[in-house]
Simulated scan of single mutants.
Amino acid sequence: MMTPLRTLVATLAALAVLGGLGGAATVAFGLFDTSARNGHWAVTDWAMHTTFERRVARLAPPDRAVPDDLDDPALIELGARHYDSACAMCHATPGADAGATIAAMVPHPPQLETAVAPWTEAEMHWIVAEGVKMTGMPAWPAAGRGDEVWAVVAFLRAVQQGMDGAEYARITAPAPEGYCAGCHGPAGTERAPRLDILQPGYIAEALAAYREGRRPSGIMAHAATKADPARDAALARDLARLPGPPAQPVRAQTEAGAALAARGSRAVPACLSCHGAQDNPMMPSIDGQGRAYIAAQLRLWRDGARGGAERAPLMAAAARDLDDGEIAALAAYFAARPAPDAR
Score class of each variant (00 low, 15 high):
A206K: 02
A208V: 10
A209I: 06
A209W: 09
A209P: 03
R211A: 14
R211W: 08
R211Q: 12
E212A: 12
G213V: 09
R214G: 11
R215Q: 04
R215F: 05
P216I: 11
G218R: 04
G218L: 11
M220W: 05
M220H: 06
A221R: 06
A223F: 08
A224V: 01
T225V: 14
T225E: 15
K226P: 00
D228G: 04
A230Q: 11
R231D: 12
D232T: 03
A233R: 09
A234N: 02
A236M: 09
R237N: 09
L239S: 00
A240W: 13
A240Y: 15
R241I: 10
L242A: 01
G244N: 02
G244K: 00
P245K: 04
P246S: 12
P246T: 10
P246L: 13
Q248N: 07
P249M: 13
P249G: 08
P249E: 10
V250I: 14
V250T: 13
R251W: 07
A252S: 11
Q253C: 05
T254L: 08
E255P: 05
A256I: 14
A258K: 11
A259T: 13
A261L: 09
A262I: 06
A262T: 08
R266Q: 15
P269C: 05
P269M: 08
A270S: 12
C271H: 00
S273K: 13
G276I: 07
M282L: 15
M282N: 13
M282A: 13
M282Y: 09
M283W: 12
P284G: 12
P284K: 13
P284C: 14
P284N: 13
S285V: 12
S285A: 15
I286S: 01
I286L: 08
G288P: 02
G288V: 10
G288N: 07
Q289A: 15
G290A: 05
R291A: 04
R291G: 01
A292I: 11
Y293P: 00
I294S: 00
I294C: 02
A295K: 05
A296G: 10
A296H: 09
Q297H: 08
L298T: 01
L298W: 03
R299W: 11
L300Y: 07
L300T: 03
